[in-house]
Each structure stands twice: as structure tokens, then as C-alpha cells.
Simulated assay, not measured.
Amino acid sequence: MRAADADRIQAAQLLTEAAAQGQLPMPEYEERLTKAYAAKTYGELERLSADLPVAFSATRNTGPAHPAPSTLLLAIMSGFERRGRWNVPKRLTSFTLFGGGVIDLRYADFTSPDVEIHSYSIFGGQTILLPPEVNVDVHGVGVMGAFDHGVDDIGSPGAPHVTIRGFSLWGSVGIKRKKRKAT
């Protein structure tokens, strides 16, 4: 049977949990994660986790994926950080005013195959860190500031698609691909 986006996301979360518990070394985790996002059938997904204590099974599918609720990250003369393991919502808005922030998607669980990030920075700065496998589109503008467009937009087939929109006024929004640290 053909797997759906929700099934691929579930398998990716299972692999992330296994890597966090030290059951998968980072290079193997990244290889399996790429295969999970490209999987077309339940069988392919099951083979990726067959040697893990909690294996993926088609019976675990509870229907369509339910994205995490929209989130606002706000830093006014302060800062925010979203790092480590967290649920990425379908829509995320970040705003800095005389402040700074970091949105690190490398270890995060995607709850939707398509994610929109709206980043606004006024007299402040933000950094968005992307894992190697996600696909990305950047549509932002810097006015007397910078909105980074230098990131490679192509990731792995079937991986989540992240669209980043926004603007910076006398500030910056930096977007970088960064590998996960080996454990």
C-alpha cells in the first residue's frame, strides 16, 4: 500500500526519537531520514525501523496528520530560541524588534509536509537553521538590512517543504543549512 505524507512524518519522528536515544548514529539517522521522506509504500517505511525497539507499523496510522497550532515567536528588546526537539507547526511567525532569535529546525519534528515561516526583523536579527534534507523557498526583502537568499533550495525528494517569507528593516534574517552534530 502507498504511504501518505502523514505516514512519512510519523516514520521520521520515530527515527528522530531513536537518534535522540542513541540507538542510531547521526550519519545512519540522516540516511534513513532521507529514505523515509522518499518512501512510497508502507513496506519501505517499515524496513527503515525494523531493527528499532518501537518499529513503524501501518496499523499505527491514525488518519490524516494534524499540524501543531500556529506559533508566534516574539522578541522585543529581548531574544528567543527554538532549538532541539520541538513540533514545527504548519505556520510559524517570528518577530524581532531590537532583539534576536534562533529557529533551529535540524532536530525538530515536522507536523506538516508544508511549512510557512513568516520572519520580520526590525533593528534586530534572526537566524533560521535548516537540516540538509528539507526543501526551501525564500521570499523576503531587506530594507537597509538583509534577508538571506543564499541558501540552496533543493533538499531530498519527499522531504518537508519550508517557505520563508518576510522582511527586515535595519536588521537581518539569516537562513543557513547546517548538518546535525554527530552524537
Rank of each mutant, 00 (worst) to 15 (best):
M1C: 00
D5K: 06
I9N: 04
A11P: 02
Q13M: 09
T16W: 09
T16K: 12
T16G: 13
E17Y: 13
A18L: 15
Q21V: 15
E28L: 10
Y29I: 11
K35S: 13
K35W: 07
A36M: 10
Y37Q: 02
A38F: 01
A39G: 03
A39Q: 06
K40N: 10
Y42F: 14
E46Q: 15
S49V: 14
S49Q: 05
S49E: 05
S49H: 07
P53H: 15
G63W: 12
G63D: 05
A68E: 04
P69S: 00
L72T: 04
A75D: 01
S78L: 06
F80T: 08
G84D: 03
G84F: 03
R85V: 09
R85T: 09
P89V: 07
P89T: 05
F95I: 08
F95A: 02
F98W: 10
G99A: 08
G100F: 07
D104H: 03
D104W: 05
D109G: 00
D109S: 03
S119K: 09
Y120N: 11
S121E: 02
I122H: 01
G124S: 10
G124K: 04
I128G: 00
V134W: 05
N135P: 05
V136G: 03
V138C: 05
H139D: 10
M144K: 07
M144T: 10
A146I: 12
D148G: 09
V151R: 04
G155D: 09
G158L: 08
A159E: 06
P160Y: 09
T163H: 04
T163Q: 05
I164N: 01
R165I: 10
R165G: 05
F167L: 13
S168Q: 06
G171E: 10
K176N: 07
K178F: 06
K178N: 12
R180Q: 12
K181F: 02
